[in-house]
Amino acid sequence: MSETKKALIILNDSDPVLGRVCKNKFKKQAGWDTILSSTYDEAIKIIVQKKPGFLITDIILKNSVKDGLDLLKFIRESDDKDIAKMPVIVFTDLGQEPDKKRAFDLGANEYLVKTELRIADVIKRIEKFIS
């Protein structure tokens, strides 16, 4: 099991159960503590206050004007070096190349498509960002 480190998960607001299940699975299978949020503003608040080890964000945030890629942009442009360097994993239903390219161009560290992976695969792909 990896060293316990805080992760911040942001998931589409219409799927609050998915967020909770991922949180439990991450804790049980990888030992990670996860803070859940579901909007751009909520996520910014948590990032600034708690400075989690890394961020996993969906792109579509239903109850936000801004999306997960705006969040990624905010992080990379932050004056706070700890925040600017935070690993960001995009975790989405959008599997098209232009979506992936946009995310990597903005500085995403990893791009995970929900329809292509099991939770164990997600944990494996994220583990490399845990120091």
Partner: peptide, 25 residues
């Protein structure tokens, strides 16, 4: 929270509802 706890009982279990596109819960 309770449903998420129930869904985590079995390590490999993944609730079928996540595979279905639908309206809000």
């Amino acid at each position: 929270d309770r449903l998420a706890d129930a869904a985590t009982e079995d390590e490999s279990f993944w609730p079928p509802v996540f595979r279905i596109k639908g309206d809000e819960y």
